[in-house]
Design a protein around this nucleic acid. Structure first.
Length: 270
DNA sequence: CCCGGAACCTGAAGGC
DNA sequence: TGCCTTCAGGTTCCGG
């Protein structure tokens, strides 16, 4: 599922293929993929505009246009982009297409149909509710400590709360807690200063390493030129049902925390 | 405020 | 082998 490292990879690889190019036309094959505004307004404000730059905020991908508008995309569970000059639909799950003036077609492929496009004049309107970027300089151990202070909710639940920290989803939360050796059900406010320090380091290390591996190709994720990522090969616990802990050799356990499948090592994570 | 649960979806996996 | 059920999870919304 696309989380921060996958969206960051898509942004990095999509950018050289689309920036500086003009939009010839857009199509929505599944109308609900466009959240707002109306199709007519989206078309009239996007057609003929040049894509000037790409950005990422949390799990949102932002395509900035020369008009000042931005196309904001959320990939949700199964969204991916594929760029190709071949005009035949690359996949039966193609939900939207942006045709560019150099003949490239930007295909949005999303089997589950949860992904959303929005056009906004001020992208902060959509992404401003998000918590800090975990890889930014400002995300210090102190900031993390402050976010967890006094909270009773399980640490796993807080890590995936986008209003607290932007971009961490189910699988990287599990990996970060494993690296920090913290049990997913620990009340957030009960973490010691030492544990918060370990968790802070683990979050950044897990996300950076996944970006270096171009994301995790769990489920349907692939990159704009069709390749997969390899971050999932480094997963120690996430999605490793029936696997064993690489440190103690014990079984990886699966529990449900706030309706999310949660994998951890009951011996190493306390 | 805090939490659980449903809805949105479809492909894959599990059960019998 | 095949049908039927369940599961997977990011986000939003609704109700207790």
């Amino acid at each position: 599922m696309p989380e921060l490292p996958e969206v960051e990879t898509i942004k990095n690889e999509l950018a050289p293929l689309v920036t500086g190019h003009r939009v010839k036309s857009v199509e929505f094959l599944w109308p609900k993929t466009l959240l707002s505004p109306t199709l007519a307004e989206f078309e009239s404000r996007v057609k003929g505009r040049v894509i000037t730059s790409l950005d990422r905020r949390g799990k949102y991908l932002i395509l900035r246009l020369d008009s000042g508008d931005s196309i904001i995309v959320h990939l949700r569970m199964t969204g991916s982009f594929l760029v190709s000059k071949d005009s035949t639909l690359p996949d039966s799950h193609t939900r939207a297409v942006i045709h560019l003036d150099d003949g490239a077609n930007v295909y949005f492929i999303d089997p589950r149909k949860f992904g959303k496009f929005q056009l906004v004049s001020d992208d902060d309107w959509t992404t401003g509710k998000l918590g800090p970027e975990p890889l930014s300089e400002g995300f210090t151990t102190k900031v993390l400590a402050h976010l967890l202070e006094g909270k009773k909710a399980p640490i796993k639940a807080l890590l995936i709360d986008q209003q607290l920290i932007a971009g961490i989803g189910n699988m990287y939360a599990d990996e970060a807690l494993y690296e920090a050796r913290i049990h997913p059900l620990r009340p957030s406010g009960s973490l010691s200063a030492e544990e918060i320090k370990r968790l802070h380091r683990a979050i950044r290390q897990v996300l950076r390493s996944a970006i270096a591996s171009k994301g995790a190709s769990i489920s349907n994720y692939f990159r704009p030129e069709g390749e997969k990522g390899s971050a999932h090969q480094g997963f120690k616990v996430a999605h490793r049902r029936g696997g064993e802990c690489p440190v103690c050799g014990g079984p990886v356990e699966r529990i449900v925390v706030r309706q999310r499948g949660t994998y951890f090592c009951p011996a190493c994570q306390i």
